[in-house]
Design a binder for these strands. Structure first.
Length: 271
DNA sequence: ATGCGGACCTGTTAGC
DNA sequence: TGCTAACAGGTCCGCA
C-alpha cells in the first residue's frame, strides 16, 4: 500500500497529536508481523516522552530518550489516531496509548509490516544503515545515480527501486518517474546516460513532491490517519492504465512484469 | 558484489 | 451465483 508519499502523509497526520506527549501504555494484540514485535517494547515505551518522529525511506522512527521504535507499514499497514478506548477491529495489532487520551493504532492485514526497537543510535541499525540517500535530499544527484550504476546489469526500474540506490521509490512512482523521464523501464541501469539520469532525478523528485502535496495515492484502501483518501491517483499517467491511451502520444499503455512487479509504460514515449 | 527467486500474509477481483 | 486463481502499493534473505 504505502510508498514514500503515503508514509510522509501518515507522519504529518499523526505527529501533531502525539509528538511531545507521554506514552502511557502499549498494547500488542498480535506480535506476528514480518518479525516478531519485541516483548520489551511495552516496558521500553511506557512512561517515556515521544520526542520526535522521523521518516527514513518508508520507515517511521519514533524516538524516546531511551531508544527508537522502528516501524514499517509493509504492503497493507496503516496508522491512525483514535480516542483511547476505541474498540479495536480485526488486524489492529498494536496500540501506543498516550496520556492525552489519544492512541496511535497500527493496522496491517497482511502483516508484512514491522515494529522493532533499538536502544542504539538508529542509524546503526542493520535495516537503516544500508539505505541509500533520501530521494528529496541533496545527496540524490544525477552524478551519484550515474556513477553507481555503471557496472549494473539490472533494469533501470529495478535499480531505482533498490533501497540501497535510493530509498522510498516504490512500484507506482518508479513507473511514473520513468515515464516522465522518457526512459524504458527495461533498459539496463548501466546503459542510461548521465543526461537521462538527470531527467530521472528531476522526475522522481517531482512525482514524489506532487504526491505528497496531494496526500498520497489511494488505489484501493490507503487512507490517511484521518480516514481521508489521497488524491494522487488522478495524477497517475501510466500506473494501472494498461490498455488505455497514453496521455502524451495516444499509443496504448503497456504492462509487463519486471522483477515480479507490474510495470506500466508507453513504448513510444519511453526508450 | 550482484541478480534472482522465494518467503512472509490476507483481502479483493477477474475469470470460468 | 459461486468457486478458484491471480494479483496487490514491500523488501529482506539465501543462494548461485
Amino acid at each position: 500500500m504505502p510508498e514514500l508519499p503515503e508514509v510522509e502523509t501518515t507522519l504529518r497526520g499523526i505527529e501533531p497529536h502525539i509528538k511531545g506527549h507521554q506514552i502511557k501504555d502499549v498494547v500488542i494484540r498480535n506480535k506476528s508481523l514480518r518479525w516478531p514485535i519485541p516483548a520489551s517494547l511495552k516496558k521500553n515505551l511506557s512512561g517515556q516522552m515521544l520526542n520526535e518522529i522521523k521518516r527514513r525511506g518508508k520507515y517511521l522512527l519514533f524516538s524516546t530518550a531511551n531508544g527508537t521504535t522502528i516501524l514499517h507499514l509493509g504492503m497493507s499497514g496503516s496508522l491512525r489516531i483514535v480516542e483511547s478506548g476505541t474498540p479495536a477491529e480485526k488486524h489492529d495489532h498494536v496500540d501506543i496509548v498516550f496520556e492525552n487520551n489519544k492512541t496511535l493504532r497500527f493496522r496491517d492485514p497482511r502483516r508484512f509490516g514491522c515494529v522493532l526497537w533499538t536502544a542504539k543510535p538508529v542509524e546503526k541499525h542493520k535495516l537503516i544503515s544500508v539505505m541509500g540517500p533520501e530521494p528529496l535530499s541533496d545527496g540524490f544527484t544525477a552524478e551519484y545515480l550515474y556513477q553507481k550504476s555503471r557496472s549494473r546489469k539490472c533494469t533501470v526500474k529495478s535499480y531505482i527501486m533498490d533501497s540501497k540506490t535510493v530509498t522510498g521509490v516504490g512500484n507506482i512512482y518508479a513507473s511514473e518517474a520513468l515515464f516522465s523521464a522518457g526512459i524504458m523501464p527495461t533498459r539496463q541501469a548501466g546503459r542510461v546516460s548521465k543526461k537521462r539520469y538527470q531527467l530521472l532525478v528531476q522526475s522522481i523528485q517531482q512525482v514524489l513532491k506532487l504526491a505528497i502535496e496531494q496526500g498520497g495515492t489511494t488505489l484501493k484502501d490507503f487512507t490517511r490517519e484521518d480516514g481521508q483518501p489521497g488524491y494522487f491517483k488522478q495524477s497517475l499517467k501510466v500506473y494501472d492504465r494498461a490498455g488505455q491511451d497514453c496521455i502524451e502520444c495516444g499509443n496504448t499503455i503497456k504492462q509487463k512484469t519486471l522483477n515480479q512487479r507490474s510495470t506500466y509504460y508507453c513504448s513510444h514515449c519511453q526508450q
